[in-house]
Nucleic acid binder design. Structure first.
Lengths: 203, 203
DNA sequence: CCACATCTTGCGTGTCACGCATTATGTGCG
DNA sequence: CGCACATAATGCGTGACACGCAAGATGTGG
């Protein structure tokens, strides 16, 4: 009961959080990448059914609210990789994990285009994608038997993977690309993922 | 004469721009990563010897002003790579160019630490490092004989390189790292730079 | 059913970005 | 050598925002 009871409150919080985030992204998409300034905090709050002050209890900027979904997704990158079977080679594990995480439902083109090609959102969008790096680096280090504090490989590889997915997204949004997002991500990751992880420990 | 005359105006602009940026970074460093909110626009403007309104003619946020130096540096990444001899292999060219650009004067530890480990600056800092990617991708594509619009390799590699340098910076700032920044960057780039560029064109 | 914790809300405040009009500072030409 | 023009700097006013604070609403547990 403790769990259920606590979960009730926690889920209310989560629900309003998602309501605000969803409303913010929706309104932003409606106005398009060039009219983001027209999306007022008041609009987001009322669209989410909360007070403007409450909105500010969950997010401290419009940008943060709009990119919240992307940020949450990136935060799961670590556990996505950790969930892969331990005997899978690193490169295959990374590719499989990232495909699961980012292409399980094909991303919403409008939403992704909004957060990736709106100048005012660039900073928050980069923060959102970069949030994958920490957990990813931990998971990579665990797999390669390295110390993420001492060895550069995990952190650098994580950054490369996150960057590859970001570039894949940009490419997928570009006009004239008929490929599925999964194919683009595969091709992008193939450029940076080490076929042989070369798990040398630091000298 | 046209050049000199025009240069006078342009150099005045550049000078005030640098004055503002420098003052902003200086004040931010003085307050430390935890007191950025105490750095008022008015302070930056008066420290730079300009009006607060003028400050806002050059930068539209404190964060942008503080990270301006890093952004300018990143913007030169493309030409740094393009300036390498054409017969140099891609991996060596990238490493040499990045070492020139980012380690020619060893970075200022206080400044780098400020922009890399201040939460409020994270978005702008990422934008600053990411600004290297576009020009870098162009230069890589030119070297590999690829089309940066169609092939993913240039863009992904550029993102990986920028990410590697960012991670190298973080590692270099961590306590207990006695290595020079150049060594850290070398080691980081070794994790992502393709020893053989594998210049296959897209099917 | 009641005391407590947590969430929501309204209000006030200080800061900020920016449009607009005015003044100062270079620029090029007659 | 000035004089018309372009560009930059400044002052002012406005609208919006983030956030601290305290009161009210809503669950939570005994």
């Amino acid at each position: 009961m403790n769990d259920d009871a606590m979960n009730l409150r926690a889920r209310n919080k989560q629900a309003t959080r998602e309501a605000i985030s969803h409303a913010a992204l929706r309104l932003a998409i409606d106005q398009g990448p060039h009219g983001l300034a027209l999306v007022r905090v008041q609009d987001i709050a009322s669209a989410a059914g909360v007070s403007p002050r409450t909105y500010n209890n969950y997010f401290s900027s419009r940008e943060e609210a709009i990119c919240s979904f992307q940020a949450d997704q990136s935060r799961r990158a670590g556990q996505a990789l950790a969930a892969r079977p331990a005997d899978e080679p690193l490169d295959r594990a990374i590719i499989a994990a990232m495909l699961e995480l980012y292409t399980d439902p094909e991303p919403d083109r409008a939403g992704l285009r909004m957060i990736m090609s709106t100048p005012e959102l660039e900073g928050e969008a980069l923060k959102a994608f970069t949030m994958a790096e920490g957990p990813l680096a931990e998971a990579i280090a665990a797999r390669a038997g390295m110390d993420p504090e001492r060895d550069l490989f995990p952190g650098v590889t994580a950054a490369a993977v996150a960057g590859a997915i970001r570039v894949a997204g940009r490419h997928w949004l570009a006009p004239g690309s008929a490929a599925s997002f999964a194919d683009v991500v595969r091709e992008a990751l193939a450029c940076v993922v080490p076929p042989a992880p070369a798990p040398r420990s630091r000298s």
